[in-house]
Amino acid sequence: MFILAEMKNVTRIPPELFNLHLNDAIAGELNNKLANKVVLNVGLCIALYDIVSLQESFIIPGDGASHTRVNFRFIVFRPFIEEILTGKIRSCSQEGVHVTLGFFEDILIPPTALQHPSKFNETEQAWVWEYDTGDGSKHDLFMDSGEIIRFRVIAENFTETCPAGPTNIQESSEGNENKVPYTLTGSINEPGLGLLTWWDN
């Protein structure tokens, strides 16, 4: 579920950080810049893994800071398609089951990818798997929030969330609030997937 991504950047070290060792200062700046951010088509950045190479630093006229070209590797959360992950149910809604991993929350299991047959229980606000016990009767298995769930990743989606341009700030700022940069789609319609308690025995 985690990968390493190699990136390069020109890192600006402001003068107040000149007391630090250059590597530490650069590591700090890179972590400030990327930690807990989604990079388009790369994934959710977690933390700096290592610095691969540093080139000479230079100073630009009119700016007291030093600029250093750096190649580095970052730990990125990016599960591959078909990977099996375990998370917790955050909530259920008509759109499906929302799952969280704690550090990553934008996972949705749509109704079509739930165990068959499932239906949404309005009063409990939970999805229910109507498990056929084989003798004609049904056993309702509820998917309550907080339960541990195992699912397969079947799709990922990156959305560009650029800052709004000056012309139509009002319209797009509303639209931007709902934009999620990186979402995963999960599926549990296979034996073994779903709530861990379903498969205990």
Partner: peptide, 17 residues
């Protein structure tokens, strides 16, 4: 900032931990 390789290696959860 530029991406050189967006997946140069897979890490196990243990390594990340």
């Amino acid at each position: 900032m530029e991406i050189v390789t967006n997946n140069c290696a897979a890490l196990s959860n243990y390594e990340v931990l």
